[in-house]
């Protein structure tokens, strides 16, 4: 296209809606801006460089930086490094983990809890997602989904507190059980693995529900109808059609919930008891004191993070293989 430069400028002004024109028109005509624009857009490569520099710098310094520094501190034998002394790297902080059961017990407890709770969340939310996606009209779907979204906007602490009130010795559950004459004295739900589990599922359910819902929603109804025409019963249809085709949603929901539930700190502190100490409490313990314990805390955090990533990685690979197997 061969436009004369002055024509182009005119055209740029002409696209402006009324009222906005003066500012953009003037900016385009303004000398320094024109010089800048000419310089910046001289070549596609320069344009890209200008666009990409800030994001790349941000990602490296702000997203990667904290993780790298955490890894570095975890290898230091003392932190902060005393002035005048060279910093020495060691694996001792990692070795401490294996040395004492008060360290690795919470670790394995956390992994076991997270696995069980992820499974419970899946079982609990799958029928809900299924109902929303398959049995509710479009219009109501959004409303009924919104109904579930509202409580999830409320913060972690407030919802944990709500669970404390629900399960307390004078809480609603014990009150109802007493009314029905099922118990004489309140069941001590609080400060056990049970109360912690209820609390964590309460906090993570939505992260499972949404991926499941979108997977189920994408599934064409005709698949099920075809299977039904071929004589498949309800259970067979679910097992052979619906379940295999929603494996992707299950996989991403489980990954999210697992990662999130390993990272809770306030909920185990408030709802758990001495017998349910989780690894996040262990890690946090090293950071309440001034600074000399930081390398050990950082090492433990690295252990936790790497293990969690490995587990979810293996899980995702497994689910992928399963999907391929179903397709073949």
């Amino acid at each position: 296209m061969t436009y004369d430069a002055s024509v182009r400028k005119d055209a740029a002004g002409a696209t402006a809606p009324t009222g906005a024109r003066p500012f953009w028109g003037r900016l385009v005509q303004w000398g320094p801006y024109r010089a800048f624009a000419a310089l910046a857009t001289a070549s596609p490569r320069r344009q890209f460089a200008i666009l990409a520099t800030f994001p790349i710098l941000w990602l490296l310094t702000q997203h990667l930086g904290p993780m790298v520094q955490m890894g570095r501190v975890s290898l230091l034998d003392a932190y902060p490094v005393a002035p005048g002394t060279p910093q020495t790297f060691t694996l001792d902080n990692y070795m401490r983990f294996f040395g004492d059961s008060i360290f690795w017990m919470p670790f394995f407890r956390t992994l076991a809890f997270a696995t069980i709770l992820t499974f419970c969340t899946l079982i609990l939310t799958y029928p809900v997602a299924y109902f929303l996606a398959r049995h509710v009209s479009r219009r109501n779907q959004m409303l009924m989904l919104l109904l579930l979204l509202v409580p999830f906007w409320v913060g972690e602490i407030v919802r944990t507190y709500a669970i404390m009130i629900l399960l307390g010795n004078t809480g609603a559950v014990n009150l109802v059980l007493k009314w029905f004459g099922l118990i004489d004295r309140p069941i001590p739900f609080m400060y056990t693995g049970f109360s912690m589990g209820i609390g964590i599922v309460y906090l993570t359910a939505l992260y499972m529900l949404l991926p499941l819902y979108s997977a189920l929603e994408k599934l064409p109804k005709s698949y099920n109808e075809a299977a039904a025409d071929l004589g498949a019963g309800a259970w067979t249809r679910f097992r052979r059609v619906t379940l295999p085709l929603t494996l992707e949603g299950i996989s991403s929901g489980c990954t999210l919930v697992f990662l999130i539930s390993t990272g809770f700190y306030a909920t185990p502190v408030l709802l758990g008891g001495p017998s349910t100490t989780v690894f996040s409490e262990t890690i946090a313990g090293f950071f309440h004191v001034a600074g000399d314990q930081w390398p050990t805390g950082a090492a433990f955090a690295v252990i936790m993070f790497v293990t969690a990533l490995l587990i979810t990685g293996v899980f995702q690979a497994f689910m992928k293989a399963l999907r391929k197997g179903e397709k073949a």
Binding site: P66, M67, Q69, M70, G263, F264, Y265, S280, F305
Partner: peptide, 17 residues
């Protein structure tokens, strides 16, 4: 990455950084 790091680890990584 920041969205996937479990809460407690993210918090102490920020604290150290």
């Amino acid at each position: 990455l920041p969205a996937l790091v479990p809460g407690i680890i993210s918090a102490i990584a920020f604290r150290i950084y």
